[in-house]
Write a protein that binds this DNA or RNA. Structure first.
Lengths: 154, 154
DNA sequence: GACGCTGTTGCGTGCTGGTCGCGTTTTGAT
DNA sequence: ATCAAAACGCGACCAGCACGCAACAGCGTC
C-alpha cells in the first residue's frame, strides 16, 4: 500500500502506480489488466465484475469474462484491490486504498460508506468478549436507510 | 435431540405449533411442509436449503428441491422462519423464534451466535449519525475467530 | 364420504455469478 | 531474436436458486 510517489493525497492512485504494483508483485502487465485498473480508477464507485467487463470491452472488445475474474483475483492477491459483498448479487470491487465499510439498504439498495469509527465499539466488544476479530469490510451490514424508514412509517 | 414431549423449554416450538401458524396464515398443511418444519425443529443448527432437502427426503424421497425452496419462502412470509447469509454460499434457515446475529470466521468457517447487545452501540450510532436502521440478522458479520487468530500469529 | 375449488407439488428449464481446463498467444528476461 | 512461463480466449461446467406448467391433494361444503 502507500503507493506514495510523495503525494500527501487522499490515496487516489493512478493507473501507472498500480501497474508498478503489478510488476513489483512479479505479475505481467497486459492490456486486459491495464484496462481493468483503468476502469477501477476512472469508473463508477462500486463496480461489479460484470460492469468492469463492460468498461474493458468498450476499449478491447475481445476480452473474456473469465479474464476479468482472474485478473481481479490476482489483483486482490497482490493487495491492489479488494472486493465487498453488498447483500445479494454480485460482488463489487474497489482499490485497496479506498477500502471502507458499507451500509446497504435492504429496501432500495442504496449503499452508504460507513464512517471509520462506526464499527469500533462493536469490534472492541467482539474481541474482548469472544476473542473474535471483526473484519467489517468484506461484507456489508444490511439495514434500512433513512429515506425508506420514514417512508415505511407513512 | 430434545424429544420435547411437553418441555417448558426456552421457546422451542413444536412442529404442531408451527403447523398451526401455517393454518392461521391461510396456508395448507402438506407432508412436505410438515417435514421441512420437523427438520428445522429437530435438525442441526444452521441448515441450508440443501441440507433440509436431504432431511426431508430421508422420509419422503420424492420431494423436489424447488418445493423446499418455495416452502421456505412461504414460511418466511408467514414469519415462521428466517434465513441468514453466513458469508459465501447457501443461505441458512432457522425458526423465527431463534433469530440472532452471527459472527462467522473467514478462515475456518466457524459460526458464533452474537450476544444480543453486541450490535447495540453500532446500531445506535448508525441511527443517530446516518438515520440508518441496522438489521444485523440477515447477513452475518465476518471476521476471524479466536482460534484462527492465535494460529495466525504462530 | 364424495365433490370441487384452489393452493401445492414434481419436473424441467433457465438464470446469475463465478470457476476450471485446455490449447494458443503474449510478455519480458536473456 | 529466442523462448519459458504467464496470461489469454474459449467453452464447459458448477452452485444456488427462480419459474411455468400440468397433475395432484388439502380442506370447506354438501
Amino acid at each position: 500500500m502507500a503507493g506514495g510517489r510523495g503525494y500527501p493525497s487522499v490515496m487516489s492512485s493512478t493507473v501507472e502506480e498500480l501497474v508498478a504494483q503489478l510488476r513489483d508483485g512479479g505479475s505481467r502487465v497486459t492490456t486486459a489488466r491495464r484496462l481493468v485498473l483503468t476502469a477501477l480508477v476512472k469508473g463508477a464507485d462500486h463496480p461489479t465484475a460484470e460492469e468492469l467487463l463492460v468498461a474493458v470491452r468498450a476499449l478491447a472488445p475481445d476480452v473474456h469474462a473469465s479474464t476479468v475474474y482472474r485478473n481481479l483475483e490476482e489483483l486482490e492477491r497482490l493487495g491492489v484491490v479488494v472486493h465487498t459483498h453488498l447483500g445479494h448479487g454480485a460482488a463489487t470491487y474497489h482499490l485497496a486504498t479506498e477500502a471502507h465499510g458499507h451500509l446497504v439498504c435492504e429496501v432500495c439498495g442504496a449503499t452508504l460508506e460507513a464512517p471509520e469509527d462506526l464499527f469500533e465499539a462493536m469490534a472492541e466488544g467482539a474481541k474482548r468478549r469472544l476473542g473474535f476479530e471483526l473484519r467489517p469490510y468484506h461484507f456489508a451490514v444490511l439495514g434500512v436507510c433513512a429515506d425508506c424508514a420514514s417512508e415505511a412509517e407513512a
